[in-house]
Design a protein around this nucleic acid. Sequence first.
DNA 1: CGGGATCCGTTCCGATACTG
DNA 2: CAGTATCGGAACGGATCCCG
Lengths: 127, 127
Amino acid sequence: MMETATRCQAYNVFSQACPTRMVLDRLADKWSLLIMDRLRDEPVRFNQLRRDVEGISQKVLSQTLKKLERDGLVTRQVFATVPVTVEYALTALGHTLSNTIESLAHWAEHNIDSVLAAQREYDAVNA
Amino acid sequence: MMETATRCQAYNVFSQACPTRMVLDRLADKWSLLIMDRLRDEPVRFNQLRRDVEGISQKVLSQTLKKLERDGLVTRQVFATVPVTVEYALTALGHTLSNTIESLAHWAEHNIDSVLAAQREYDAVNA
DNA sequence: CGGGATCCGTTCCGATACTG
DNA sequence: CAGTATCGGAACGGATCCCG
């Protein structure tokens, strides 16, 4: 388990060279987790994804999907219809991650009120 | 549970107005999760945090801590020593989130090899 | 020690236009 | 339908200087 030279020790998770941090850095953007969450239950086509993940531009969607595909989390399948159809889906690896994403979403759902309350209080004090 | 007007339904997690997305947007930056992970076990002072979370600048650390404090995830305690001492720590709310963060870190630790392999393969094909 | 203020390059990102 | 290419503004983020 610890034979990989680049793998960080537990006490060194914060080092820049730590691969865990590399993964975290890659996923900690505005859209990646959201897109993966949308793909959790079914394959989705490009423009459908664009409509469902509200607010994302087509450029950024394209870029993000490419990164997720490169990381082995998402597959891109082209169907030779006219016009062409492209389906994006989670890989097996992607599915293992989506469980964690869901727990993050659940935390947010359950604690949004506390967060909003804290923000209001903070803003009231720091007027 | 669903009485809050701004809370999204399960089928609408991707809407911009969804509070779950607001929380996700806030945490999905380069440093927030990393800082919270460092605070998991003990309160940490500003410059110690700066040293431990490798690569973060003092400006960005300061900004990120302020946001985390505003969200009610982190507390800031000032001690009137000379020179002044400031300790950052997780709130109770912050601790409930840190469990999820840890599972994300564990996923990364366990699957980094698969991700790196996928990247190499992708780069080889798209030369 | 724990920041704030400023400057400045880079990256991000949205809008628009175009293509197979 | 599923993208790519280009442009320009906005936001991010690092380096430096300064202060209580």
